[in-house]
């Protein structure tokens, strides 16, 4: 896609980044993100957390066929090709499959530890494949890939991210993208009703954010890459939930509430970085200006196999332009 009037001449300090979050195991979304990085001539690819999927679909072997349920719909496959297509569909929407018989599935259901282990194996194996593919695809293009986990990512993914040949895990780190821009990253989030692996009390968030902010050398060119969005913004609005995790709606409309981090909001307001990249709240796709800072959440529709991302054109001290894309 040609961009007219692009001021990305060498030495101008121009840089184009592509950022996305909340892939949740969707291989279709991951591969589209890679393609988009190339298509939009990005110079850096940034992933803001929540890489792993949430569910395993048991595919039950039964005589001459296999059957499973996807989004409540029963799928019966008769041939190997149909089975492969079904498994691919499961992978594209971010789930994992598990071929087993009915007794095995029931046994797994009754054994949470074994099920947990199965999740770990499935998540890590797919993540390894993704990272390997990303290296093969992005390295020849010279596009660095900066990655952090998100609150839904089990701690077992950390060694996988750290061991990646090309992608770089920058969780809780400040790194230089170029002479003008530092990337300040963290996957921890404020507590959610689900108490996810990287949900933390606000006191933890205050300390963690402060520790990172203290390492920034040039706040005017800093880029925050926090999975959790700043509190009380357009990009942290999520449906309000009852204590039973039911959505709150009145007159047929969902009641929304802020689900971001006050500590991150304070940091954005005090440091006033150039750009603040987020994810976490899939529904809250959008842009919010906080002082001079442009805060972005590209949103997520991983379950539809749709990739959502943000393209940002940066100059040394200003966001020149941005665009939210999906495909």
């Amino acid at each position: 896609m040609p961009f007219l009037k692009r001021s990305d001449k060498a030495g101008s300090g121009f840089v184009r980044i592509i950022q996305a979050a909340d892939f949740h195991g969707s291989t279709a979304a991951w591969r589209k993100f890679m393609a988009a990085a190339k298509q939009h001539s990005a110079q850096h690819a940034i992933v803001s957390g929540d890489l792993t999927g949430k569910a395993i679909v048991p595919i039950i072997r039964s005589n001459a066929h296999h059957e499973g349920y996807l989004f409540g719909n029963k799928v019966v496959t008769e041939t190997d090709a149909e089975l492969a297509a079904f498994r691919q569909r499961i992978e594209n929407v971010g789930f994992y499959d598990y071929l087993c018989d009915a007794d095995e599935a029931r046994a797994l259901e009754a054994d949470p530890d074994r099920l947990h282990q199965l999740f770990v194996e499935k998540m890590n194996r797919r993540l390894e494949r993704w990272l390997e593919f990303a290296g093969e695809y992005l390295q020849p293009l010279g596009i660095p890939l900066w990655v952090i986990p998100g609150n839904d990512d089990d701690h077992s993914v950390d060694p996988i991210l750290n061991a990646a040949q090309y992608a770089r895990n920058v969780d809780h780190q400040v790194v230089e993208l170029d002479d003008h821009h530092e990337l300040v990253s963290m996957g921890d989030t404020s507590m959610t009703p689900w108490e996810c692996p990287r949900d933390y009390p606000e006191e933890h968030m205050v300390v963690a954010v402060r520790d990172l902010v203290e390492q920034i050398r040039n706040p005017a060119g800093a880029i925050f890459n926090f999975h959790c969005p700043p509190f009380n913004t357009k990009i942290d609005q999520a449906p309000a939930l009852t204590p039973d995790l039911e959505i709150v709606h009145e007159a047929g409309q969902v009641m929304m509430t802020s689900a971001g981090s006050p500590a991150i909001r304070r940091a954005v307001q005090e440091v006033q970085p150039l750009l603040s990249l987020h994810g976490h709240i899939h529904e809250a796709r959008g842009v919010q200006k906080l002082g001079r800072t442009v805060a972005l959440n590209p949103g997520s529709e991983y379950a539809e196999g749709v990739m959502k991302a943000a393209i940002v054109n940066l100059e040394p001290t200003r966001v020149k332009g941005y665009m939210l894309i999906s495909g």
Partner: peptide, 9 residues
């Protein structure tokens, strides 16, 4: 079971 779901947001 039709689906195994882990505890996520």
């Amino acid at each position: 079971p039709r689906l195994f779901v882990r505890k996520t947001s």
